[in-house]
Simulated assay, not measured.
Amino acid sequence: MSAASLQGKRILVTQAGDFMGPTLCEVLEEHGATVIPSHDDVTDPEAPARIVKAAGQVDVLLANLAVPAPSTPAAEVSDDEWRDTFAAMVDPLPRFVQAVLPGMLERGGGKILVMGSASALRGMKRASTYSAARGAQLSYVQAVGVELASKNIQVNLIAQNFVDNPTYFPPEIQENPRFQERLKREVPLGRLVGAREDATFAAYLCSDAADCFVGQAFPVCGGWVNR
């Protein structure tokens, strides 16, 4: 990708201070985009419409939604845990999409990219709540992606795991010898995917070069060892 591949694109990044937000903003700007970072709480039902209105023209919505992943056994998951996780990662998504769609339809195109998780693609122990929420994101993207394709609006998702970010892999986890052994055991790459590697792929999916992809989930996880 050239440094000007996103020139003229106005990209709204949600939860810009969390998960992949900081690196996304940095890399997108390097590729020429005008980045509109939002740090607002997205669990307020009225927040997405308010954020989009304040952003002005949005050519690309980058839905970066995350909460620390609960690790509760399925039999012990509380109603509060379930509701809170969906309120943070699932409920805001259609609200953001509905807020940006009128402008994209009027201009005849746009892109929506969700920073999701590979937990939606593979069973993981003690992750039923988190995986269900990420799976809901994926199903929504697949359905809306094919619905909006004819409108020249591309909706896709990055299904990532073992990607360097402060929400799920802070320094204290990365420095833990047990985690380092886990990387060697479970990830053929033998390391976390770099944050900039992931963000550069996101930048590509935000560019005109990726107009052919609709309703897709792209795994970014350094490869898995099947167990």
Rank of each mutant, 00 (worst) to 15 (best):
L101H: 01
G190A: 04
T129Q: 08
A63T: 08
M20N: 07
Q174T: 15
G17M: 06
Y168C: 07
V42S: 03
R196I: 00
E175S: 15
R178M: 05
C212K: 10
P171T: 10
F162S: 11
D164F: 09
V52P: 00
L6E: 02
A33M: 00
A143T: 12
G215S: 08
I36M: 09
S38D: 08
N161S: 12
C221W: 11
G103W: 00
P177C: 15
D208S: 15
L205F: 06
L192S: 06
V60R: 00
E29D: 09
C206V: 00
V90P: 02
Q137H: 14
Q180F: 12
K111Q: 03
K184G: 04
G110V: 05
N165D: 10
V52H: 03
Y130D: 07
P22T: 10
I158R: 01
Y140M: 15
A63H: 08
V35C: 04
P171M: 11
A99S: 08
V27A: 10
G110S: 11
L24S: 04
G135L: 07
T72I: 03
V163D: 01
W224T: 14
V225M: 01
A99M: 11
C25P: 09
D18C: 10
R10G: 04
T14C: 11
V146A: 10
Q174S: 10
T23L: 10
Q57T: 14
D40V: 08
C212N: 12
D164C: 07
L189F: 08
R182N: 12
C212P: 07
A3Y: 08
R83D: 03
V100R: 05
A54T: 13
I11Q: 02
L205T: 05
E186D: 06
M124G: 03
A118C: 09
D211L: 10
I153R: 02
A63S: 09
N165L: 10
P45F: 00
R182M: 15
Q180Y: 09
H31V: 05
Q160D: 01
Q7G: 06
P73A: 05
G194A: 05
D198N: 14
Q154S: 13
I51P: 05
R182Y: 14
L189Q: 07
L157Y: 01
G103C: 05
L62T: 12
N161T: 13
V60W: 03
I11R: 05
E175N: 15
A99E: 09
A203F: 04
D91N: 03
E29C: 10
A75N: 12
R10C: 02
L113E: 09
V97F: 05
T85S: 06
E46Q: 13
V42M: 00
A88C: 00
E29K: 12
E197D: 01
L105H: 13
G32S: 13
T23Q: 07
I36W: 05
L205E: 01
I11V: 15
R178C: 02
G21D: 04
S131G: 14
V90Y: 00
E26Q: 15
V90F: 01
V114N: 03
I112M: 03
D41I: 01
A210Q: 00
D164E: 14
G123Y: 02
D40Y: 04
Y130L: 14
E46V: 10
L65G: 06
V193P: 01
L113T: 04
S78E: 09
A55F: 00
D80R: 11
M124F: 11
V146H: 11
K125D: 14
D41C: 01
N156D: 01
